[in-house]
Computed example of a mutant assay.
Amino acid sequence: MDLARSFAHRFGQLSHPDAVPRPFVAICPAVILEEGERLPWHHHRKAQLLYTLRGTIHCETEDGIRIVPPQCAVWIPSDLPHSAFGSGDIECHCLFVEPDAAPGLPERCCTVSISPLLRELLRRAARLPELYDADGADGRLVAVILDELAAAPVENLHLPMPADPRLRALAGMLLAGPANHASLQEWASRVALSERSLSRLLAQEVGMSFGRWRRQLHVMLALQRLAAGESVQAVAIDLGYESASSFVTMFRKAMGKPPGRYLQEQGRM
């Protein structure tokens, strides 16, 4: 069963979420996906929240890729075309929200951190009936969830993707060989650009230098594997770092804290 049919199966006897006359729709039970399953490009009128309980989801939009490790969620605004695929076996909650359901909800696609309180609220919401009592206790629960979502911190787990085909080719090579630490000049020659042109195009299209862009890719790949239980040493070696300490230095520079502390604070260690 592919990812699209898996979600459709979860809808079961439910109406399509966009047609449900409630500001909040939860798919229950949690969706279980196998590694490699992919949701084709699509969009819907309601915004969507994909909350990962186990495994890692990658959400792709036209402007880039967002990684969603366990205990994080991706917020997908109304009518934004997107695709998603999993890394490892996936267990996630799928929630749909009316765009104007509450003030302060994110306006852009982003990865958000899920607090312990919000985690328990989402688990409870997954048991709500499709036509819950919007004026009763269920409606008050939904209101608290929306307030918590609006206040949830955004995680820097976005890899912007360029539109230029040469830069897209470069992105593909970096994703396929993240341990390759060739120089900017070497990468530029591989996509038939000068070093100066490559730097200029990257600044124009993704707003980052080459070094920062590659570092962001490494952070995303590292979090995916560390959240799955791999050691810092193994991840550092596979990403081409000379030592675990040099990898930790890179990670701290990008995320403001070392990987062990970051994962511990996110409740993933």
Rank of each mutant, 00 (worst) to 15 (best):
D135P: 05
L122H: 08
A137H: 11
L131N: 13
A126F: 01
V144H: 12
V142R: 00
L122D: 05
P129K: 06
G136L: 03
V142C: 01
Y132D: 02
R123I: 14
D133S: 07
Y132P: 01
D138W: 00
G139H: 06
E120Q: 15
L117V: 13
R127H: 15
R119F: 15
V142Q: 00
E120S: 12
A126W: 05
V142I: 02
G136E: 04
R123L: 15
L141M: 11
D135Y: 12
L131Q: 14
D135C: 09
L141E: 04
A134W: 09
P116V: 10
G136P: 03
A137Y: 10
R124V: 08
E130F: 05
L121I: 08
L118W: 08
L146D: 00
P116D: 10
G139C: 03
G136M: 04
A143R: 10
P129A: 06
R127G: 14
P116F: 11
R140E: 08
A134K: 15
L141A: 03
A143N: 09
A125M: 03
L146I: 02
R140H: 11
E120G: 05
L121Q: 14
L117T: 13
G139D: 01
G136C: 04
Y132K: 02
L118H: 09
D135F: 10
D135K: 15
L118P: 12
L131T: 07
R127P: 01
L131A: 12
P116K: 10
V144P: 05
L141N: 03
R127M: 12
